[in-house]
């Protein structure tokens, strides 16, 4: 049986000799079942091709570009105000692509990385090629830890990658069929219009709360950087609340996208290692005094509205999120 499928596969993949292919075709001519199997396998390949090709239309998430530009080590950080970004116009793009990248959303991550076009590409791309803690004699050797935040960053190259990625977003069409496979929380296809940004944050929480080793993109030790970076990206200036009195330890932060907007996610853990997150995104409007609880299929949230910002505390059932939210609201 497997042998039969191997032959069909080799035939479809052009890996058969002419004689073997002719033999299979002759067999299929006399065996309608085999002929049907070959045809079905070919049709399946067409479907596989369509499914994979749909992935190519998915716009790169802004977070990917932002991650690259934002996780430089302290002291070598890229400062978006005085960028060292090279002229990232390799596809004949307009040399000032920022308005397109921004897509009418002020503060979209990645935008900063493509400002200040026109600098030359660095001439010494090999500098800093060896990761710390392990002289790498072979190029296959990985950096010490996979987590981007833990890597030794070469800011110039990081910035240039960010520019490349940000530019790519310009070319990538919106409304891609499988956007959501790659980027939960970006624009969703038909039938998902009712899903709001809080649903998307709940999705993120389900995924990230299990990423114990990869919990944060930027660790808590870089709190100043987190406040500057995420304050700028989201357009919501804030201070990272100290929630130790409520039993939560700050672990670090990520940049997410929900409702089409950049979202700062501040990650905390309790004594038992359970993850709680504070998320914030910009919004129009004034503060309201309510702290509103909501449940999302196993993810609990308490939302409050500050001037120009919406905050949520996100956690597990059983956490006193109302108290956490009230404490955090005093500090942010």
């Amino acid at each position: 049986m497997v042998d039969r499928m191997e032959r069909i596969s080799a035939y479809l993949d052009g890996e058969m000799s002419a004689e073997d292919a002719a033999r299979l075709e002759a067999e299929a001519a006399a065996d309608p079942e085999l002929a049907a199997e070959i045809e079905a396998a070919g049709a399946l390949d067409d479907e596989i091709g369509l499914a994979f090709d749909a992935l190519l239309d998915a716009p790169l998430p802004p977070a990917l570009a932002a991650t690259v530009s934002a996780t430089t080590t302290p002291g070598t950080r890229v400062e978006p105000a005085t960028p060292t970004v090279p002229a990232a116009t390799p596809m004949g793009e307009d040399p000032a692509p920022a308005p397109d990248v921004a897509r009418a959303e002020p503060g979209v991550p990645g935008q900063a990385a493509v400002q200040g076009q026109g600098d030359a590409l660095p001439e010494t791309p090999a500098m800093g090629a060896i990761p710390p803690g392990g002289a790498a004699p072979r190029e296959e050797l990985p950096p010490p830890v996979f987590t981007p935040a833990n890597l030794d960053r070469r800011p110039i190259f990081s910035a240039s990658i960010a520019a490349v990625l940000a530019l790519l977003m310009v070319g990538a069409g919106a409304g891609a069929l499988l956007t959501r496979v790659f980027a939960p929380g970006t624009e969703l296809a038909d039938g998902h219009a009712t899903r709001g940004w809080m649903d998307e944050i709940a999705d993120y929480h389900r995924v990230y709360a299990r990423q114990v080793r990869h919990l944060a993109e930027v660790p808590a030790s870089e709190q100043d950087h987190i406040e500057a970076w995420l304050g700028k990206e989201t357009g919501v200036p804030f201070s990272v609340p100290d929630l130790t009195a409520s039993g939560f330890t700050f672990q670090g932060a990520r940049l997410l996208v929900a409702g089409g907007k950049p979202v700062a996610q501040l990650l905390y853990t309790d004594a038992g290692g359970q993850v709680m997150a504070l998320c914030v995104l910009a919004r129009e409007g004034e503060a309201t005094p309510e702290f509103t609880p909501r449940s999302f299929d196993g993810v609990e949230m308490v939302r409050w509205l500050a001037p120009g910002a919406a905050w949520v505390a996100v956690g597990e059932p059983g956490m006193d999120l109302d108290a956490v939210a009230r404490a955090a609201a005093q500090e942010v």
Partner: peptide, 13 residues
């Protein structure tokens, strides 16, 4: 990540 996979390409993927 995708919610309902309501397209054929989504199901296949």
């Amino acid at each position: 990540a995708g919610g309902e996979e309501n397209t054929r390409a989504g199901q296949v993927m």
